[in-house]
C-alpha cells in the first residue's frame, strides 16, 4: 500500500464534491483524508485527497478523476517538492500533575494551548502527517477526551502553480486553441 496526495482543481459548481466522492466509492479507492476549499479564483475550488492505493495505479485513479467534466486539473503532491500540513485540535486530560508534562510536549512540537479548563487542555497543532501522528502518540498517555483533525492540504514548492500547469497541459492557456464550438451541433 502506498500513500499518495493528489491536488485536484475543480469547478466550483454544485454537486462537484459528490461526484468526486461517488467516483472513489464506486471504483473502490480508499480515501484517507479529503479537504476542500476555495482558491485564488472564485470559480475554482481545490480538493486535496490523500489515498492509499492497493492494486490501482495512481495514473488510473487520475485518469478516472479527470473524466469528471468538472475536474480541471490533477497533480500528485510529493513530499520532496511540496509543503503538506494538517490541523489537529485535541482536548487532553490535564488532571493531577499532567499539566506541566503536557506543556512540555506541546512545546516540543511547537503546538499551542488554545483553551484551559479545570480538567483539560485544548491543544492546536499544525504539522505534517508524521508530526501530527507523533504528537498524538505522546498525548495518548495523558488521556485524549476529544479529537478533531482536518484533511491534509498541500502546496507545491517554487514559482509554479497548479492552475498554470493545468492550463498549459490542457492547451487552454491560449484562448485561440479553445474552439469547442465547431462540431457539437448534432
Amino acid at each position: 500500500m502506498a500513500q499518495h496526495t493528489l491536488s485536484v482543481l475543480v469547478e466550483n459548481s454544485p454537486g462537484v464534491l459528490a461526484r468526486v466522492a461517488s467516483l472513489f466509492s464506486r471504483r473502490g479507492y480508499n480515501i484517507d483524508s479529503l479537504a476542500v476549499g476555495p482558491t485564488e479564483s472564485p470559480e475554482i475550488s481545490r480538493i486535496t485527497i490523500v489515498l492509499n492505493l492497493e492494486g490501482h495505479a495512481l495514473d488510473q485513479v487520475s485518469a478516472q478523476l479527470f473524466k469528471l467534466v468538472n475536474v480541471i486539473g490533477i497533480q500528485e503532491m510529493e513530499d520532496k517538492n511540496s509543503h503538506q500540513r494538517e490541523l489537529l485540535m485535541v482536548k487532553v486530560n490535564s488532571a493531577g500533575d499532567n499539566r506541566s508534562k503536557i506543556e512540555a510536549v506541546v512545546g516540543k512540537y511547537r503546538a499551542s494551548i488554545v483553551s484551559q479548563a479545570s480538567a483539560s487542555l485544548t491543544i492546536e497543532a499544525i504539522g505534517s502527517s508524521a508530526e501530527i501522528a507523533a504528537l498524538l502518540g505522546e498525548l495518548t498517555s495523558f488521556g485524549i477526551k476529544e479529537l478533531v483533525q482536518s484533511g491534509l492540504i498541500a502546496l507545491e514548492n517554487g514559482d509554479a502553480t497548479l492552475a498554470e500547469r493545468t492550463l498549459q497541459e490542457t492547451g487552454l492557456a491560449s484562448s485561440s486553441t479553445h474552439s469547442q464550438t465547431e462540431d457539437y451541433q448534432n
Partner: peptide, 10 residues
C-alpha cells in the same frame, strides 16, 4: 451559446 467554455473537458 456560440462558444462553450468547459475548462475540464477537452
Amino acid at each position: 451559446p456560440k462558444k462553450l467554455n468547459l475548462l475540464g473537458y477537452n
